[in-house]
């Protein structure tokens, strides 16, 4: 299997397994991982009642294609030895994992920077949409200006 891969899946993932898959090669000196979770206190749509779940919709085909393009962009910017993106879809309850980015490089700077870049761009470019599920109904999560700004800082001259 290539040291670079993207996956979209309904099932949960095991962080340790994903990290060890990238750290096996002898040249790797640094592995950075970021995991995003469904938060219990989320109240971004202002709907009444506690959050019971997030339902993630995605665009099959384009989601994978866009994640591959983000991966290619990261590889063109940093000397990566491996990287993985795993993004779940479907119903995810508070405390569960949603997304994982793992990057491997000879030194930590590239691994940190590439992981941060991939997460920022994933949020604004990968075709996924979150809907909150609450006892009193639910609504779509609105895109955040702060996420757009976080992604744009990678393009400023």
């Amino acid at each position: 299997m290539s040291a670079f891969s993207v996956r979209v899946q309904a099932e949960d993932f095991d962080i340790a397994t994903e990290i060890s898959a990238l750290s096996g090669a002898g040249e790797v000196g640094a592995v950075v991982s970021f995991a995003g979770y469904c938060r219990a206190d989320k109240s971004e749509t202002g709907a009444a009642g506690p959050l019971t779940a997030l339902v993630l919709e995605h665009y099959p085909g384009m989601a994978e294609a866009e994640m591959e393009r983000l991966m290619d962009e990261a590889r063109s910017r940093w000397p990566l030895l491996g990287a993985r993106i795993v993004h779940r879809h479907g119903r995810i309850v508070p405390g569960e994992q949603i997304v994982l980015v793992v990057t491997a490089s000879a030194h930590r700077e590239a691994a940190f920077a590439a992981a941060s870049f991939l997460m920022d761009w994933l949020k604004t470019n990968a075709p996924f949409w979150k809907k909150e599920e609450r006892a009193g109904g639910g609504d779509w999560v609105a895109a955040k200006d702060s996420d757009t700004e976080a992604a744009q800082r990678w393009t400023s001259g």
Binding site: G36, L56, H58, Y59, G61, M62, A65, E66, H87, I98, V99, M119, L122, K123, T124, N125, A126, P127, F128, W129, K130, W140, V141, A142, A143, D147
Partner: peptide
């Protein structure tokens, strides 16, 4: 056809067009 596009992009020869809100994954 699975690539982000601007409003002024031509749809000539395109097989699949998708419309959606700003993305909220990650």
């Amino acid at each position: 056809d699975h690539r982000h596009a601007k409003p002024d992009a031509s749809i000539s020869g395109v097989r699949e067009v998708a419309f959606f809100p700003p993305m909220t994954g990650g």
